[in-house]
C-alpha cells in the first residue's frame, strides 16, 4: 500500500472539506477501498475516516418508510426486523452478496460506492479507461464473462457489481447526500452513471459530498423476490440478478417494479419493462414481451453473449414464480 495520511473526520462538515480535496477519499467499512489500495488501483494521499460521524441508525420516517444510515452495516440492515418484514427484497439482496464477515464490516453508503470487479480495472498492468483514462479497454475483445450487455460504450463494458443497490432501485429508494452546498436526495435509480466517454465517473457524488443515508418509501407489499444467478452458490458476483416487487389485482399485474444486476454499469431499471406488464394477466407470451423490451438493445462481447438469453430466462422465471397459481 502506498503511504497516506489518515485523518479521523471530526464532523460531517470537516469530512466534506477533506474529501473535496482531489487526493482524499472517505473511508467507512473499507472492505473494497483497502482491497483496491493494496492493488494500487487506488492511491489516495489521505483517507478521511467517517466511521464515527454517527449516521449509523436505522429509523422509521414520518411517511411510514425507513431511513437506513449510510454507516449502518449491510448486516445491520439485512437483519433489521422492519427490513425483513417490509422490504424483504432488500434483505435477500444483501444476504445474497459477499460473505458474513464482509457484510459485517461493509456499510450501506460504501456499498453504493463500490467499484467494479472488472479484471482489467483491478490489474494495474492492464489497459483500463476507468482506472487510466485513454489507456483503452482490455475487456472489449478480452476476458468479458462478467461484463455488461446493456448501456455499454466503446470506452468501457464494466458492470456495477453490487446486489443491495439493485433491490434499492426496485424499491424506489433515495440516497441522502450532504455536501458543502447543502443536502440533496438522489433516487438510487439515478445515482450510478453509464460509462459513456467518462467511465471513471461512476456516480453523481461531487467532490466533498458524502452519503448520509438511504430513504426507503413506505412499504408497498407485494411479492418480493431477489433472484441471483451466479457461478457458485455463495460468495460470487451476479452474472444476472433480478429484484422484483410484483402484485396482482383481479388476476392482472397491478405492480411490477423490476431492477436488474450484472447487466450494466449501474443497477438497470427500465420503466418500460414493468409498464408492459401492468393491467395484463400473467402469461408466457407476456413475460417474453417484457424480456424483449429489456433486451432490445442488448449487445454481447463474445464471452458474455450468454447473458442475453440468461437475463431473458431469469426474468421469465422470476415473473412465473411471483405469479404462480395466477397464470
Amino acid at each position: 500500500m502506498r503511504p497516506f495520511q489518515y485523518t479521523r473526520a471530526p464532523s460531517l462538515t470537516e469530512a466534506s472539506h477533506l474529501t473535496a480535496g482531489e487526493d482524499t477519499l472517505a473511508i467507512a467499512g473499507g472492505t473494497n477501498l483497502l482491497d483496491l489500495m493494496k492493488l494500487q488501483v487506488e492511491t489516495p494521499g489521505q483517507l478521511a475516516d467517517i466511521n464515527r460521524l454517527g449516521f449509523a441508525d436505522i429509523e422509521n420516517t414520518d411517511d411510514g418508510g425507513l431511513r437506513l444510515g449510510a454507516l449502518a452495516t449491510n448486516t445491520e440492515t439485512a437483519v433489521h426486523p422492519r427490513v425483513r418484514a417490509d422490504y424483504p427484497v432488500l434483505s435477500r439482496a444483501i444476504l445474497a452478496g459477499a460473505t458474513q464477515q464482509l457484510r459485517n464490516k461493509a456499510t450501506n453508503g460504501g456499498n453504493l460506492c463500490q467499484r467494479t470487479r472488472c479484471f482489467y480495472f483491478t490489474n494495474i498492468d492492464q489497459p483500463c479507461n476507468k482506472r487510466k483514462p485513454g489507456s483503452g479497454c482490455g475487456a472489449i475483445d478480452g476476458v468479458a464473462k462478467l461484463h455488461a450487455i446493456l448501456g455499454t460504450s466503446d470506452q468501457c463494458i464494466a458492470t456495477y457489481p453490487g446486489d443491495m443497490a439493485v433491490a434499492l432501485s426496485a424499491l424506489g429508494a433515495e440516497a441522502r447526500i450532504s455536501g458543502d452546498k447543502g443536502e440533496r436526495n438522489v433516487p438510487v435509480r439515478d445515482f450510478h452513471c453509464l460509462p459513456g466517454d467518462t467511465p471513471w465517473i461512476e456516480n453523481v457524488l461531487e467532490p466533498g459530498e458524502v452519503i448520509t443515508g438511504i430513504a426507503l418509501p413506505a412499504p408497498v407489499g407485494g411479492t418480493q423476490i431477489y433472484r441471483k444467478v451466479r457461478e457458485r452458490s455463495s460468495y460470487a458476483f451476479a452474472l444476472v440478478s433480478v429484484a422484483a416487487i410484483i402484485e396482482l389485482t383481479d388476476g392482472k399485474f397491478s405492480r411490477a417494479d423490476l431492477a436488474f444486476g450484472g447487466l450494466a454499469h449501474k443497477p438497470w431499471h427500465d420503466p418500460r419493462v414493468g409498464k408492459c406488464l401492468l393491467g395484463q394477466p400473467p402469461s408466457d407470451a407476456l413475460f417474453d414481451k417484457a424480456a424483449d423490451i429489456l433486451l432490445e438493445d442488448a449487445r454481447g462481447f463474445g464471452e458474455n453473449d450468454f447473458k442475453i438469453p440468461l437475463a431473458r430466462r431469469t426474468l421469465h422465471s422470476v415473473l412465473a414464480q411471483a405469479t404462480e397459481g395466477a397464470a
Partner: peptide
Amino acid sequence: CDHGQCGACTVIVNGIRINSCLTLAAM
C-alpha cells in the same frame, strides 16, 4: 490472501466477525 477472500484472518471485533486484513488498525 490478504484481500478478504479466504477468511483465514477472521477475528471477532466487538462481538462481530470481520476480515482483519481489510481494515486498518487505526480505525
